[in-house]
């Protein structure tokens, strides 16, 4: 999506060049005040001292970042050791988000490809079917999944009825449930951009490959996939980034034990027990992580584009 906004326009002109600044003013004002300024303020808060009733004291300290990475004992007087608690929560989130992205790609790519190769009339129906869940409230979808996966839920009832299992399988409140939830939440985000890429793919290339005795799977691996790479990358970003900071799936399906970044951050701001500077610092670390990944992919893409044109 971000990539789509960044590309130049085909029918660009300068009809309204004179009014340009006025036309841009509302968007700049709203986004600077309600997105940029808040992020800057969050950066400031991450360096402030924690107030016990859930606010801050305006004194500069690195305590929040220190707490994230190091353990200095109960009274803070022991030599610093690396504290793995929060690093592991981040690592688990990256792992869960990565796995969800991989699974979504595994199902999403064949789906996108299949839809793109349907005749034009039926194709719109298929796309419509993928678009509906994309528009349905994420909370409702997650609650539905919770209902389905419950110990006495329809999935267990079905498995018991078929005789595949003798006792209900415990799925809810496990890492697997979080995984299923993330995969299910963001699957349409994987299908739609890949579909858009495959639709523009020139199938004469596949025919040429077949004429040159490439097997179908070789054609897929060596010709189709490299050609639709931008769509695959866009789909992976759209699944990975929201999965990484997801709150609903880990909270509703994972229970208290299967913490991810989103729950860790949310907890710092809930009630009076929270630690705002620590929550701000954890958010900054998450934001940095995401921006580094996006920048890395953008540079990769720019390099691939240069190679394609030269």
């Amino acid at each position: 999506m971000a990539g789509a906004a960044a590309t130049g326009g085909s029918a660009r002109s300068d009809t309204y060049a004179s009014a340009r600044n006025w036309l841009l003013l509302p968007s700049w004002a709203v986004l600077c005040i309600f997105v940029l300024a808040p992020v800057a303020m969050m950066l400031v808060y991450s360096f402030l001292t924690k107030e016990f009733r859930g606010g801050v004291i305006w004194e500069f300290t690195l305590a929040a970042y220190d707490q994230f990475f190091f353990d200095r004992g109960l009274f803070g007087d022991e030599p610093a050791r690396i504290d793995w608690t929060y690093i592991l929560i981040f690592w688990r989130s990256i792992w869960q988000a990565g796995l969800a992205t991989f699974l979504a790609l595994l199902i999403g790519f064949p789906t996108a490809y299949f839809i793109a190769t349907r005749p034009a009339q039926t194709r719109t129906v298929w796309v419509f079917l993928i678009t509906i869940p994309y528009w349905v409230n994420l909370l409702i979808r997650t609650v539905s999944m919770k209902f389905l996966l419950r110990d006495q839920g329809p999935l267990n009832d079905f498995l018991l009825a078929t005789g595949l299992i003798d006792d209900p399988v415990r799925i809810i409140n496990t890492n697997a449930a979080v995984q299923i939830g993330l995969f299910y939440s963001y699957l349409p985000f994987m299908v739609l951009p890949i579909y858009a890429s495959v639709e523009r793919y020139n199938f004469a290339l596949s025919e040429a490959a077949a004429d040159l005795y490439a097997s179908k799977w070789t054609t897929l691996r060596r010709i189709v996939i490299p050609s639709v790479r931008p769509g695959i990358i866009a789909g992976c970003i759209l699944v990975f980034v929201p999965s990484l900071g997801a709150f609903l799936a880990p909270d509703l399906l994972g229970g208290a034990k299967n913490f991810m970044i989103g729950s860790l951050i949310e907890e710092q701001f809930k009630g009076n027990a929270g630690n705002w500077p620590f929550g701000a610092a954890a958010s900054m670390i998450l934001l940095t992580l995401v921006l580094v990944i996006l920048m890395f992919l953008a540079r990769q893409q720019a390099r691939a584009d240069r190679e394609a044109t030269s």
Binding site: A2, A6, W28, L31, L36, P38, M42, G245
Partner: peptide, 25 residues
């Protein structure tokens, strides 16, 4: 380009980060 970047910003920042930032603001 700066305008396009600014407009795409809410799509790139994870939602939970926007939420925290807005609350703090």
């Amino acid at each position: 380009m700066a305008s396009l970047g600014l407009i795409s910003l809410p799509l790139m920042v994870p939602e939970i980060v926007t939420a925290v930032a807005t609350l703090i603001f």
